[in-house]
């Protein structure tokens, strides 16, 4: 039976071997993970954020653990576009899974410049537009929480990405995430990824100071999973389903059961984030677990699970 289960998915025109990605910022540029897993066994891979110029990132402490979660405020520390193209793309080029590059910037021009340069690169299947990072002074979430700016940056990038899939990563803490999702799709997004982290704070009561040097950080991990499942389901029902736009669901996924919840809620694919820090090979187990679930539930094609949430509570 197991051989007959098809867990391949179609994601914005891309054929993926399975619906499991690793999420931006939690899997480096792929080579870091290779001691722990075969990155090619993934359906997709999203690089950490790339900006036009290298960024040092924020001062330390950059992380703090919380109940069933963690806050991070890295601040887009990255090697910059030129070094990425020169040093990291050759590694990514060898991958058989779908490679997405997460791109970020302080201005629309910066997003466009990075997107334009990467649009011609064979190694890349698509771009993930980071308009939801809570840890930078300029750019990031300041774009993602304002519908008119979401529209402007998405359409500007769409004009230069050519055939590459444009995926827009949404911030969770907005009045109505579906409004932002709709605007992104109208402006040209081929796919949506959600959710990014929640802006959060931990206070040191001895010093009465925030623990993080950046004061606030993005909350991730199991603590945010039920909210993420809800928001994926909301965007699926209100925007994505009718328009045929795939969702990459994420937020606290550690196990196959977690991943399946997201798929049932409406995600066409899922991304493993914080869990990579704890169990760097766990995506492989999740892929295997999804397959086993399908066997157990007599589901021959994982696509049939997407958005299969039974909301009829009368039974």
């Amino acid at each position: 039976m197991e051989e007959k289960v098809d867990i391949s998915v179609e994601f914005a025109g891309l054929k993926l071997a399975n619906p499991v990605f690793t999420a931006s910022g939690t899997c480096g540029y792929a080579d870091e993970l290779s001691d722990f897993m075969d990155v090619n066994s993934l359906g997709g891979f999203v690089t950490k954020s790339i900006t036009l110029r290298p960024r040092k990132g924020n001062a330390t402490p950059r992380i703090v653990e919380t109940d069933s979660g963690m806050l991070n405020a890295i601040g887009w520390a990255n090697i910059g576009l030129d070094a990425f193209v020169e040093e990291k793309l050759p590694v990514l080029e060898k991958l058989s899974c779908a490679v997405f590059v997460n791109i970020a910037g302080e201005t629309i021009d910066e997003y466009v410049a990075v997107a334009e340069r990467l649009s011609g690169e064979q190694a890349i299947a698509g771009l993930e537009l980071n308009i939801s990072c809570p840890n930078v002074e300029l750019g990031g979430i300041s774009f993602g929480t304002d519908p008119s700016q979401v529209s402007e940056v998405t359409s500007a990038v769409k004009k230069v990405v050519g055939e590459k899939v444009l995926m827009v990563k949404l911030a969770p803490a907005v009045t109505d995430v579906s409004v932002i999702a709709q605007v992104a799709v109208d402006a040209g997004a081929d796919a949506l990824s959600l959710i990014n982290t929640f802006t959060a704070m931990v206070v040191d009561i001895e010093t009465r100071k925030p623990v993080l040097a950046n004061k606030t950080g993005g909350l991730s991990g199991p603590a945010i999973k039920p909210i993420a499942v809800h928001l994926v389901n909301k965007v699926y029902n209100e925007v994505a389903k009718s328009l045929g736009i795939p969702i990459l669901g994420m937020g606290g996924i550690r196990t196959a059961s977690d991943a399946i919840e997201f798929i049932i809620a409406g995600a066409s694919a899922v991304a493993v984030g914080t869990a990579n820090f704890i169990e760097p090979g766990c995506a492989v187990k999740i892929i295997d677990g999804i397959k086993k679930y399908c066997v157990r539930k007599n589901i021959s094609n994982v696509k049939d699970l997407v958005g299969s949430l039974d909301q009829d509570l009368t039974e």
Partner: peptide, 11 residues
């Protein structure tokens, strides 16, 4: 967080 060069926390 990770200890393997991914999370960029330990700057």
């Amino acid at each position: 967080a990770c200890g393997i060069g991914i999370c960029q926390s330990c700057a």
